[in-house]
Amino acid sequence: MSVVGQSTKFSTVALPVLAWLVALVFFFPIFWMMLTSFKTDADAVKPEFLFIFKPTLENYINMTENYDYWRFAVNSVITTVFATAFSLFVGVSSAYAMAFNPGRHTKDILMWMLSTKMLPAAAVLYPMTFLTKSFLNLFDTHFLIILVLSLINLPIVIWMLFTYFKEIPKEIIEAGKMDGCSVWGEIKDIVLPLAWGGLASTALLCFIFCWNEAYWTVRLTTTDAATLSKLIEGNRAPEGLFFGRLSAVSTAAVGPIVVLGWFCQKQLVRGLTFGAVK
């Protein structure tokens, strides 16, 4: 930033130092969780081993024994991957229709889609359990979780794709039509290659949201389709006797997503503000 006449000591030394301090404070809980995951449960609550201790991988090695981590992790991966794929599949065709062939009501439809996102989940909790348990027999199945996760995220996916598709010049699409492209050909050969980056960041964001979802995944599952959110909420170890293993399983649950998040910080803004801030 080239702001004139601000090269005082204060702004060149003190402010960056302060920025670093703030960043470290915000990152500290995550760092603390990572650090504790390498301590034994006994060491984790002893003040003398706060920072200096004998690191151990025991917690990670025993994760399966203590928490059955892999079963939950596999469920998280399955539901997240399929839900992301499904919302992208539905989202691409819908966003294509709205971006390139807008009708009189396109704007209203988009707004309405967004408004479904604002429905408090708790309000429809009972009907959802009732329907899935007694009528559809889908309770605690991967299919249900995949469907719910993709529906929750569909509005955001459509909105993000819509803003990316709008950036593609209409003339290119028209030219494709002249050359006799079918609708599918248009999507496959023109829109998707041009909006590739947008598609990738939409997928990434959708993946993160699905992975972190903690209301429906906890309440619509018991064992078969239970994800990592359910594992953590079910094992919150009230007396804190198991800080070491709790930290290990938490680190393993959030680690991949935090790293993914770093890569899509910029796109995140567009997704989270529904394209209103770019």
Binding site: V22, A23, L24, F26, F27, P29, I30, M33, I208, W211, N212, A214, V218, L228, S229, I232, E233, R236, S250, A253, V254, I257, V258, L260, G261, W262, Q265
Partner: peptide, 12 residues
């Protein structure tokens, strides 16, 4: 570092 907390699962 600053953005990281946002990606942590609410339960965690």
């Amino acid at each position: 570092l600053l953005i990281s907390p946002f990606f942590v699962m609410p339960a965690v």
